[in-house]
Design a protein around this nucleic acid. Structure first.
Lengths: 152, 152
DNA sequence: TCCGATTAGATCGGATACGATTAATAATTC
DNA sequence: GAATTATTAATCGTATCCGATCTAATCGGA
């Protein structure tokens, strides 16, 4: 686990691990969203996928996967579920039948525009540091993915 | 989703969401650890659990769960797997048969002392910011959990 | 044009997360 | 001290993640 350089040696306490901080913060976000998303019958991942789809119409599964860092094995069941709920439309691209095009339905767009979770900004307790943390963690992610990919 | 205060309004791009930064950074850590953990036949969560258990001997499932922010429904199968692999021991506490005590075997301790993932510190690209990010994200997590719990 | 290689999704199996429920043991109350 | 309540793990069902594999569609070179 990626530890703080300072904490090397005997300690090996969980609190010294950055990956654990991220891991548990992710769990915490999931729980913070739970009551909000329960009201609209969505899971955390389904909501994230819906937000990504609101970015742009007629995306493919691959394109969406690049944004979410996920692949079709994970996305296909989620997208089918969202379609079944009437929030998105899926259809094969006539120009290339291999690709599936995705777009929000009016109901899906309406749901996204409610901006659930806006109230959680307060709950992070980060104040003015909010955008800094966001950028730093994103950079961390990109660095890790780049380093991982380079080893292939 | 908890957005940056600045980004409120129409945009709603994924990059503006702190929860997505955390979510995807967690995926990235999982992938960065994958090749390291494959060598010893462990998953990411199993490894985190093992690190938490190296903290202290004879912990109960609940105690471990508090450290990991998980409960028995998630932990029990993981702990059974770790026992089956010969890395930990599980036994009912004679003084209170409801509790299961957990401790590392010599093999488990040996594995932890290898300090897998130390090499990933470099890959985060955070440099001297490493401990700062760790603390900030931990604080974020604790604030979210507190706010979530307060709504019960 | 034909056939091998590539690409896009989908499917399948294993391993988390987590709410809800259950079983077994302890603690409490009357 | 018997009955109720509380606590601890475990079990079950649903929903992710992810590696491996499969199928269908497209592309490319001879």
């Amino acid at each position: 686990m990626a530890r703080s350089p300072k904490a090397a040696g005997k300690g090996r306490k969980l609190s010294n691990f950055l990956c654990f901080a991220i891991y548990s913060a992710n769990l915490a976000f999931g729980r913070a969203y739970k009551p909000l998303l329960d009201k609209v019958g969505l899971t955390y991942t389904q909501y994230i996928a819906l937000v990504a789809l609101s970015d742009e119409d007629e995306q493919t599964v691959s394109t969406l996967g690049e944004k979410l860092f996920l692949e079709s094995n994970t996305l296909t069941p989620i997208l089918k579920k969202l379609e079944q709920m009437g929030l998105i439309k899926r259809h094969r691209d006539p120009a290339d039948e291999r690709q599936v095009r995705l777009s929000l339905t009016p109901a899906g767009r309406k749901l996204i525009e409610q901006d659930l979770g806006g109230s959680l900004i307060e709950a992070t307790g980060l104040g003015d540091d909010f955008p800094v943390v966001q950028k730093t963690v994103s950079r961390l992610r990109d660095n890790l993915l780049r380093a991982t990919k380079a080893d292939d």
